[in-house]
Nucleic acid binder design. Structure first.
Lengths: 137, 137
DNA sequence: TATAAAAACAGTAATTGTTATTATTTTTAA
DNA sequence: TTAAAAATAATAACAATTACTGTTTTTATA
């Protein structure tokens, strides 16, 4: 599936783990080091294509740019409300009572993706005792 | 806090429960029935203001417009991947192992809001045996 | 290999949900 | 009753993303 050199550079960057859950824009600026003419549209197209093929996964966030993850194993994420940094959360740490939800709501539940919110270690330190961070609108 | 007539109309529409978890746009077209000149900006400003004051709550979704909820009690949501309809999910039905997550990730966890994905009863019927719905990009 | 069809590309324009700006109107309070 | 403050309508700006277009690259096949 890795025909084009641009696509290969994109997937390689993701797997290199230089940046952990990069947005398309971060991928763009990095891949540009080896492909100065690559277009942002190409980055988006390939990231989506790779996600669709299951070679990477896409992490959609509320009010923030999508992130991309070379780890396709099932797991959840937590995002720092202050700086936007994302960390993995093992899928065993969130328990969803699928049966009850389906019974009560009538929905079928796809428990695949969950994004928790919180504060990363660095931002905890920065913001901790003095000022309580204001709620994000 | 309900000074302006427009703001009152907005909060009244939300509480009327004619539509369950409307987006700003849905609020806009409905409030326009009584205030034909109201501006979309006014709707957004007031919805955000009301959410900030805690009179309503804002439900942020990945890759979809924010929704607004007159119910400010703590609870989660599930969104239909096919039609976007949202339903409440009691907060007892999702269990987050906050202690372990905090220990393993170093993050502090704000377990406030979670949005699950699934299929609402209507879309289940529509899509069920024949065609398996395609993954949303 | 040559070459035609298919795929991918760069660059740019368009879309969508939302926020910011601005000049005007409404509300509040002295 | 009138000046200051707040809110408004209308519109522009914005950010993330997708769509479009004409060109280049890749692939497959003769």
């Amino acid at each position: 599936m890795n025909y084009s050199r641009q696509r290969e550079a994109i997937v390689n960057f993701l797997r290199s783990a230089k940046v952990k859950h990069p947005s398309a824009d971060i991928v763009y600026v990095n891949v540009r080091k080896s492909f100065p003419n690559i277009s942002l549209g190409t980055v988006y197209r390939n990231l989506n294509l790779l996600a669709q093929k299951g070679e990477i996964s896409k992490v959609k966030l509320p009010s923030d740019a999508d992130r991309f993850d070379h780890n396709t194993e099932p797991h959840f994420h937590i995002i720092c409300e202050n700086c936007g940094q994302i960390e993995d959360v093992g899928s065993g740490l969130v328990n969803i009572d699928v049966m009850s939800i389906e019974r009560l709501s009538g929905f079928s539940v796809d428990s695949g993706r969950i994004v928790l919110k919180g504060l990363c270690p660095e931002c905890r330190k920065k913001l901790s005792p003095t000022k309580k961070k204001e709620e994000k609108k």
